[in-house]
Simulated scan of single mutants.
Amino acid sequence: MIIANDGVDASSSAAFLSRMLQFGDSMFPIGAFAFSAGLESAIQKGIVINAATLRAFARTALEQAARGDCIALIAAHRAATAGDIDTLVQIDAQVYARKLSEEARTMSVRTGKKFTELGVDVVGAPLLCTWRECIKKSVTPGCYPVALAINFAVQDLAACQAFVVHQYGVATTILGAALRLMKVSHIDTQTILYELTGQVPGMYETAAAARLSDMTSFAPLTDILAAVHTKAHVRLFMS
């Protein structure tokens, strides 16, 4: 048996890391590629015009996610670890209620439902099966942060790891869309991604110390961009 420097079985650590990478991969088929998280409208309205403004837009999205969805994600991970379905339903309802725009609700619910379904097929844990049934019976909307939390909890992956995957997904959704929407290079997007991932540990500490009641949805510009996007004449993305 190979033991890592911190005393953890290195082979087990490698397995956890591999699964974290699998479920956090941008190629994981939950449909996130169809959304731009408001970037399309931001470009059309001249808010994002170059790599510098793209970096600022993506950083703001990560900060908003850390103050909102990620607080719910951490709380949901605790509930899932305890097998507490009732609390998971309550948390999911609070996530959904804070999605003010139709596009934000659609993105969270569609990706969350698909993530749950794939989790059942790939992982097959009983709690995931129960959560899928709750979604099918409309007991709960099935938002993405909660689906991610349940998936990681049943695999004994930590809340911090789920947080990293969530924030990485927010960043890559925006940066991947940028490559199709504006004049920006792969070097630009990878540089931005590298800078943003360096800020994730601090964001986690803030989110982990927060209570569920601290979760906020205050993002007026994002909501305005979503409203504008709904009526846009030309749309490549669903948000």
Rank of each mutant, 00 (worst) to 15 (best):
I187D: 13
K137G: 06
V234C: 05
T197D: 13
S138E: 10
D223Q: 12
T130P: 01
A171R: 01
L128E: 03
E133Y: 03
I192W: 11
A226Y: 15
K137N: 12
G112W: 09
L128T: 00
G119F: 09
V228Q: 08
L179F: 06
T197P: 05
A207K: 05
L118I: 07
C129D: 02
I174G: 02
A153N: 01
T189M: 07
Q199E: 14
P145Q: 02
V123N: 10
S217H: 12
G112C: 10
D223E: 13
C134I: 02
G202L: 08
T130C: 02
L175P: 06
T172W: 11
T206H: 09
L118Q: 06
M215H: 04
I174R: 01
T130S: 04
R211N: 13
A207D: 05
L181G: 15
G202P: 14
R211C: 12
V170K: 00
Y144C: 00
F237V: 07
L175S: 05
C143I: 00
L236Q: 15
Q167H: 08
R180V: 05
P145K: 02
N151M: 13
T216S: 15
L148W: 07
G169K: 05
L193R: 03
P220S: 08
G112T: 09
L175K: 02
F163M: 05
A209D: 11
L212T: 15
R132W: 04
H233Q: 09
